[in-house]
Design a protein around this nucleic acid. Structure first.
Lengths: 142, 142
DNA sequence: GCCGAGTTGATACTAGGTCTCAACTGAGAC
DNA sequence: GTCTCAGTTGAGACCTAGTATCAACTCGGC
């Protein structure tokens, strides 16, 4: 079963209609190799209007199919990503985004909660750096 | 020496002029007990135009006098805060923001760098939860 | 007083996104 | 088959959070 079909089934299972517009947006998202801006997707996606593209991205985001990444300049991007709690490693040179399997702060949260008296409900973490490929490229040039 | 004077001296030391507009913005910021939106400050601050308010906030942000916090709904707020690397603990109930002394992830970063091959240059972390006061309030009501 | 750099505020513009609303669609009831 | 009605759509207005532009102003130094 293709990703598109799988997502369509997921949508139907939740009571959403799988319309041609939604299919077009999902197909456009799946065709992306890396992250994308919502507006850029709206411009390229001929099969759906801007509002529909934004709505569909939000829908897929709720479903856990795509997630939002904040780039180091603060601009938001979207990414086909696994669902559940995870963080991202963003390469500041080539822009690729890598999922992080472990949650880096889960251990520290308890300590912070104890020290501050807060009941911590959520957190947001993005990591920025240079990926292995970019580092290798610079090393060769140097 | 008042905070306003101290910030003014800091500005002068860096070669910036301390103009009435800047004083007005700084005074408005210092009058805030907690975080504020830049636009809201611009509306209330009669002594300076919108562009100047945004420019001054950026200037103070560069100086480390204020810092930007991303609330749990994604909206940006500013906060008079200590300079240097630190994170924030945002209460989702009353909105107060607390500085975190320790960087919760510094330890985990090395591990992630090793595992991923990334050279980690920076990170962004915000924590959301309910502060001690809000928890106490709910506990009394229950 | 003059000069020039720094600063200002009005305004236009941008990005990223939501809201509104009339029109359309399609699944189920009859 | 067609009626109905909730879900969906797209155009466009609108919103928030800023940045860019530019003529006018300010102020320190000569």
């Amino acid at each position: 079963m293709s990703d598109l079909e799988q997502i369509s089934l997921e949508l139907e299972a939740r009571g959403y209609r799988v319309t041609p517009s939604r299919r077009a947006v999902i197909a456009a998202i799946l065709a992306r190799k890396n992250h994308f801006a919502a507006d850029e997707l709206a411009k390229r996606c001929r099969g759906a209007g801007r509002a529909t593209v934004f709505r569909t991205i939000r829908l897929l985001s709720d479903l856990g199919v795509v997630c939002r990444v904040l780039m180091d300049d603060g601009s938001p991007r979207y990414l086909v990503s696994r669902s559940g709690h995870h963080h991202h490693l963003v390469c500041t040179e080539c822009g690729t985004v890598q999922d992080l399997d472990q949650c880096a702060v889960s251990g520290a949260l308890r300590e912070i909660a104890d020290a501050s008296g807060y009941e911590i409900e959520g957190h947001w973490l993005e990591l920025y750096g240079r990926c292995a490929a970019c580092r290798a490229r610079t090393a060769v040039l140097a």
